[in-house]
Structures are given as C-alpha cells and as structure tokens.
Amino acid sequence: MFPSPNAVSRRSFLRRGAAIVPALVMAPGVLQGQVSSTVNMEGNYYLPVRPPAKPNPVVQLDEEAVIALERTLACPCPCTLDIYTCRTTDVTCSNSPAIHGDVIRMVNGGYNADEILLELDKVYGQRIMASPAKSGFSLMVWFMPFAALATGALAIALLVRTWRQNAVNATAARVDGGVGRIGVQATDDEMARLQAALRDDTR
C-alpha cells in the first residue's frame, strides 16, 4: 500500500480511537441500567393521594383556582399535557380524571393550593409538577440554556474581534507591500474584463 495524500493516517486515527473504546463499552451498560427503571410497562401511572379531610373543612379554592392549579400539574402518562388539558380532551387517559378526583377531594377536605401540591409531591415526587422547580438540581435545567447562550455570545464576540484584528493587520501589510495601489497597475484590458464580469449577473 502506497501512501496516499487523502487517506486517513491510520496510526493517528487508531491512537485517538484507543482512548474512546472504554467509554464506548461502558456507555450502553450505564444507560441500560438507568433506562430499565424509567419505563413503566404497565401504562397506568395513577397513584392514589387521599389525605384525611381537615376537621370542619372550609373550601378555599373555587373552580377557576382548581383549573389554574391543575394547569401546573403534569399528567403522569406520556401525553406531555397538563392535568386540566388532558382530562378535558384525551378521553383514553385514565390518569388525569383520577388525579382530578383526588384534587377535588382535597379541596373539599379544606386543603389550600400549596397543601395540595405538597400532598401530591409526597406521593408522586417532583415529576407531578409540569415545570421543574427553580431550586436545587432542577435549577440547572433553567440555568444552562442561558449560560450556554451567554458563553456562545462571548465566544463570538471574541472571535469577531480576532477577525477584525486580522483584517487590520492584513490591510496594513497590503499597503506596505504596495498591493493596495493595484488599481493603478491594472491595464485597461484587465479592467474591461473585470467590468464585464461584474455586469454579468447571471451567475
């Protein structure tokens, strides 16, 4: 085999590969273990939330407040909708009407919005909230996109500055070398050809 200018240098290629093989071997295993716990094969995601009613319960939430509350709750089925939207539309979902029932029971039991969220959180965990909390680890999900964007903006600003500097330097070099005066050196013939090429916009 003769060396070809286009062929990948096998040695450098393999050297780089060697470092990554362990990662390759490990990755599927890690993910496999992780995923098996994620996917619920049953399809029923409802968990009962039935705290005892308060003594002498006073209903603190009207219908609109319940709707507003349910809009902040995620339906635990894979529909990605909130409880209110899901229960009013997706007829096949058995989860959202059941959770709605629990919420109404708690409202009638005298619970206010925060207490209801707390009770739901005890059973379902954070995933019942449609949007992640803006605290703790979940803060990352909110923070990262903007952090990345800011970093990117900064990188671009620096890049543009470098390019600008390159141009300044190059112009200086051109003027020193006399290239900037090329217009004087061009023959009429050359200018004519240039003009013709410029006029022709069919390209």
């Binding site: 112009t171 290239v179 900037g180 090329i182 217009g183």
Partner: peptide, 13 residues
Amino acid sequence: KAKYTALALAELR
C-alpha cells in the same frame, strides 16, 4: 471597492 478590485485583479491574473 478598492480592496476587492485589487483582490479580483489578483485572482484574474
């Protein structure tokens, strides 16, 4: 225009 005319001429040559 001056800069790119110069460059275009260089290209042409």
